[in-house]
Design a protein around this nucleic acid. Structure first.
Length: 154
DNA sequence: GCCAACGTTGGC
DNA sequence: GCCAACGTTGGC
């Protein structure tokens, strides 16, 4: 089993939105970055776990855990001209963008803030991409060690 | 293939 | 709202 971190802006989709969703599940759509796409398409497997991270908000941080319940499949929002993430160059016969389905496993009592994570940037969380310079990916792998340590902060 | 211009991300 | 860092686009 592999571990991941998924970013979402709570103003567009928060962990509470996920908690309210039918079956506490959602399709993780709208990712339009090739590196992230590759992970969604090729590497994320059913049963993998991911931290749910709130970005671009008052207090950025990890707010809970989700499970991958369906591995990568074509992101249909790319084919919908009315969708915000529409991509006219994505061919339905050779889809360019992919998504996975995730299900809420646990919402933390309090969010583990970016501030708090940063305090371990040169220690236990040395390998956490989130803390590395210039990392803007909305999907990133998390090592088993970092996963375990972050859980101990929750 | 280079690179300038532009767009996006995301913390602050 | 600012800006650093990065990705993408398109002319050449």
């Amino acid at each position: 089993m592999n571990y991941w971190l998924l970013k979402s802006e709570p103003s567009s989709f928060s962990i509470d939105d996920l908690a309210r969703a039918r079956g506490r599940k959602t399709a993780w759509d709208g990712v339009r970055n090739y590196q992230a796409r590759n992970m969604l398409r090729d590497e994320m497997k059913k049963g993998d776990r991911a931290f749910f991270y709130h970005s671009s908000c008052e207090v950025p941080g990890i707010t809970g855990i989700v499970a991958v319940v369906r591995a990568g499949y074509p992101d249909v929002t790319a084919f919908d001209p009315k969708d915000h993430h529409f991509d006219p160059d994505s061919d339905p016969h050779a889809p360019r963008w992919f998504m996975v389905d995730v299900k809420l496993v646990r919402k933390f009592e309090r969010s583990i803030t970016l501030d708090e994570l940063k305090r371990h940037a040169s220690g236990k969380l040395k390998d956490l991409q989130l803390l590395q310079r210039g990392t803007r990916l909305s999907v990133m792998p998390v090592s088993a060690q970092s996963w375990k340590f972050i859980l101990s902060l929750a």
